[in-house]
């Protein structure tokens, strides 16, 4: 699992690559806080390199969305592959996120 956080003037881009499983989620908790610090700007999560996501991974997204909404920001997801999109659909998360 790789995460790349790029801060730009008009927003933050978070690129995720690899498998977002339970282990990866526990390792990502610090990075989540780092991202949440930046959520005064719109956050775009680039999922084009994301191959797998478990419920723990979804939980990361939920925490991100809650945190950013609390700060008035927004989270949008881009580049989801069909398999990952299927998980989002299965979990109802597709209704919660702005998926492009």
């Amino acid at each position: 699992m790789k995460i790349d956080i790029r801060t730009q003037e008009h927003g933050v881009t978070v690129a995720l690559a690899g498998e977002f499983d339970t282990i990866a989620t526990t390792e990502m908790s610090d990075r989540l806080n780092e991202i949440l610090e930046l959520t005064d700007r719109p956050v775009t999560v680039d999922c084009s390199e994301l191959e797998y996501i478990s419920s723990s991974g979804l939980r990361f997204f939920m925490q991100l969305k809650r945190g950013s909404e609390r700060r008035g920001g927004s989270v949008s997801l881009v580049g989801l592959n069909e398999d990952v999109k299927e998980i989002f659909r299965l979990s109802g998360f597709c209704n919660l996120f702005d998926i492009q």
Binding site: R59, S91, G92
Partner: peptide, 21 residues
């Protein structure tokens, strides 16, 4: 309930949903 809003969602339950599905 997958229709719940983010704030209403509980932490657990999703996993069971997944494997049952």
């Amino acid at each position: 309930n997958v229709g719940d809003a983010v704030n209403a969602r509980q932490a657990g339950g999703l996993g069971i949903l997944f494997y049952k599905t």
